[in-house]
Design a protein around this nucleic acid. Structure first.
Lengths: 146, 146
DNA sequence: CGCAAAAATTAGCTTTATCTAACACTTTTA
DNA sequence: TAAAAGTGTTAGATAAAGCTAATTTTTGCG
């Protein structure tokens, strides 16, 4: 069982995936902007990600994810999505906050909790469809009145 | 706004509070057992906690929390309690898991999310009392059927 | 009491993750 | 096309958090 990559490196990896989608190529300075750190810290991170086989990296060349890196990202972004969905649609947070909080939590929340959140969302949706509780709508209403 | 103590140090602080309650005095080796690390790492942590004014520490003496340390712990354990409550009573996890997961998350979840979880629990309880949805019971039932 | 065992600390090393400053490559542009 | 600007990397520091091995302090017992 290959040891899990650190929270910091996971975040770099996510930003790389994001930038790849947006711009194709991924540059050190864009990553530094996103991560709020110096370019030299990015270089250091890229070297470590490369050693772990998660990115294709050569000096002065734009970066891409390896197949392994893609796989890691896929799992992570699923976690992120479910978390953000839960925060927005169950706990009734605004989307922006939900996204930010999901970023903070996705590296820590266990798989069981993620799956349970998914099931909970499904449950609430079913309840809503049965027009019995309209639980999520009711919660939003409840929030307004406080 | 004094900068927040690290996740690692926060964990040490919690174990200190726990041991203080159980045994009065807090010894390096007990802490090492609890934290699953070496005694030398504990000494190192104690020195840093002491520099931050969170514990009273002198070489070879048992450790106690400062007022500041107590305050930190109080906030943390409130977070822990709400999280565990949410995991157990909303997401229907067994108590043991809820406690463990709360330990992992309490250092990362933002205050807003904690407060919102508290409100959500309150909301569900009210709903349940109105005998309208019995949402939490229904969710447990729903879980059983899967 | 005095000494051995246990407990705690120190010293020194490692890795991660960050920084600044200096240097090396690339790209732009006059 | 060559100098300047911009981008990327290296070198060297620092701090957190851990480790092992060696040393120091405390404690318990014969």
């Amino acid at each position: 069982m290959k040891d899990r990559v650190s929270v910091a490196l996971e975040s770099y990896l996510e930003q790389i995936a994001d930038l790849q989608k947006e711009h194709g190529a991924v540059r050190t300075s864009d990553l530094a902007d996103r991560m709020g750190c110096r370019r030299s810290s990015v270089t250091n991170a890229l070297q470590r990600l490369s050693e772990k086989g998660l990115i294709n990296y050569q000096s002065y060349r734009p970066v891409t994810l390896t197949a392994e890196g893609e796989k890691t990202i896929k799992a992570l972004s699923r976690y992120h999505g479910i978390l953000a969905d839960f925060l927005e649609n169950i706990l009734a947070f605004p989307e922006k906050f939900a996204q930010e909080e999901a970023c903070r939590l996705e590296h820590r929340v266990s798989q069981s909790t993620i799956e349970r959140m998914r099931i909970y969302i499904e449950f609430i949706e079913q309840t809503d469809n049965l027009d019995r509780g309209l639980a999520s709508a009711k919660f939003k209403e409840f929030m307004q009145k406080r």
